[in-house]
Nucleic acid binder design. Structure first.
Lengths: 223, 223
DNA sequence: TTGTCGGCCGATCGCCGACAA
DNA sequence: TTGTCGGCGATCGGCCGACAA
C-alpha cells in the first residue's frame, strides 16, 4: 500500500516514526489495544522497552479498507545510549512531502441510495482532474484507485443552480460495495504519479458520543 | 437435522447403515474423498476395518445447505465374528417409513430472475397443502422450513391456460438467497408433523459431463 | 403437462434543479 | 457553498396468459 495514500486515510493525527529511529514500546498499551484488559502488575515485563524500528509495513484491511501498520522492533540494551549516531531523526515523519488530499464526512444525502455525492468545490478543483467548464454541461469520467489497487469509475458533473460539483453514475455502486453509511468519510488523493486515489474512514460506532448523530463537516488533511 | 428431510435431500441412492450395525471402513477411500490422493501402499494400515456404528449425525452445510453425515465407528477385533447377535439388521435402512417428497431440477425459467417456479402437478397435489380450486383464482400462501429450520414463504397459485401450478412471490428471493442456478434441484417434503420442508441439491459443477447443459427432468424420490 | 416467451404494470433507481441553511 | 427535497423519466422486477414442445 502506497504510504502517501495510507497517511491520507489515517489522517493528520497519525504520525509514524522514521526507519531506524528509536522508539519506546509499551507492552501493556499494546496488549490493552489487542485484548480487553491485561494485568501486567505481577509479570516480569518492563513498562516500556527502548527499541529500534527495523521495518514498517503499511497495510489495509481487505474487508473494510481500514488502514493499519505493522512495525518490526528490536529491543536495545539498557546501556545502549548512543542517542547521537546521526542516522536517525529524533522526531516523527512530518509527511511534509505533502500530496494533495481531501477528506469529507458523508452526509445523509451522500450515503442515501439513489443519491449522488456532493463534491466540495475545494476537492473538485484541487484534487480532481481539470474539468472543461466550456462544455455544456461540464462533465467527465473520473477513475480512482482504492487501497487494494482496484479502480472505481465515477461520473463527475458540474451543474444545478447554483452550480456545484457532483459525482453521479458509479457513486451508489461504490457506496454499496464499500458498505458506506452517513458519518463515514471518503478520502481523495492525487498520487505523485498523477493517479487519483480513493480511501475511506469508517465512523467509530458504539462508543460514547458516537451515536447515530454524526458530525458532518469537511477537513483538508494536514492543513 | 430431521433424518427424513436429510434423506429427501440426499436422494434415494444414499442409504445409511442402521445404528449398531457392522460396516467395513475403508481408510484409503475416506482419505481420497477428503484429500487429493494418499498412498497407503507403504503404510501399516489395513485396506478395510470391520466396525460397529455407534452414532450417526445427520448434518447440513450452513452455507450451501448440502447434506452430509458423521458416523462414529468403533473397530471390532478380527476374531469378533458374532454376526448373529440379533440386535442389528444386516441390510441398510430402506427409509420405508416413507414421507412423501419430491425433487425437481430447476429450468432456466425457474432460475431466471423475474420468473416464478413451475410446480409439477404431482408435487402440488401430493406434497403441498390442499388448494381451494373454487377460489378465483385458486391461490394460497405456502410456508416451508429449510434444513436450518428457517421458514420461507411462497405464493402458490393455479392459473394460466392451460392451468398450471406456480410459485410466484417469494420465489426469486429464495433463489437469490440460496444462490440457486439452473441445473440445481429443489426438494419438497411433507414431514410427519405435517410441516412442509424444502431442501436443495447443488448441481455437480466442473466435472466431465457436467457442462452448462444440464438435464432437466423430475424425479419422485424413492419411487 | 410444463418450458419459454413477450407484454405489461408497478416499484425502484437515480439524475435533475429548486431552495434554503 | 452545499445539504435536502420533490419531481420525473428510465430501468428493472416480477406477474400474467399465449403458445408449443
Amino acid at each position: 500500500l502506497d504510504p502517501q495514500l495510507w497517511h491520507a486515510c489515517a489522517g493528520g493525527m497519525v504520525r509514524m516514526p522514521p526507519m531506524n529511529s528509536k522508539v519506546f514500546y509499551f507492552p501493556q498499551g499494546h496488549a490493552e489495544n489487542a485484548y480487553d484488559h491485561v494485568d501486567f502488575k505481577n509479570l516480569p515485563i518492563p513498562p516500556m522497552v527502548l527499541c529500534r524500528v527495523l521495518a514498517i509495513k503499511y497495510m489495509a484491511d481487505p474487508e473494510s479498507d481500514e488502514v493499519f501498520a505493522k512495525l518490526r522492533l528490536i529491543p536495545l540494551k539498557d546501556d545502549d545510549h548512543d542517542y547521537g549516531d546521526g542516522q536517525e531523526g529524533n522526531g516523527f515523519e512530518t509527511n511534509s512531502e505533502k500530496t494533495p488530499s481531501f477528506a469529507k464526512t458523508l452526509t445523509q444525502s451522500d450515503a442515501n441510495n439513489g443519491g449522488g455525492f456532493s463534491v466540495p468545490r475545494y476537492c473538485a478543483e484541487t484534487i480532481f482532474p481539470r474539468l472543461d467548464y466550456n462544455a455544456e454541461p461540464p462533465v467527465q469520467t473520473i477513475l480512482a484507485k482504492d487501497v487494494h489497487g482496484d479502480v472505481w469509475k465515477f461520473r463527475h458533473i458540474y451543474r444545478g443552480t447554483p452550480r456545484r460539483h457532483l459525482l453521479t453514475t458509479g457513486w451508489s455502486n461504490f457506496v454499496n460495495q464499500k458498505k458506506l453509511v452517513a458519518g463515514d468519510s471518503i478520502v481523495f488523493m492525487r498520487a505523485e504519479s498523477g493517479d487519483l486515489c480513493v480511501g475511506i474512514r469508517r465512523a467509530k460506532r458504539g462508543g460514547i458520543g458516537n451515536g447515530p448523530d454524526y458530525s458532518p463537516g469537511w477537513n483538508p488533511i494536514g492543513g
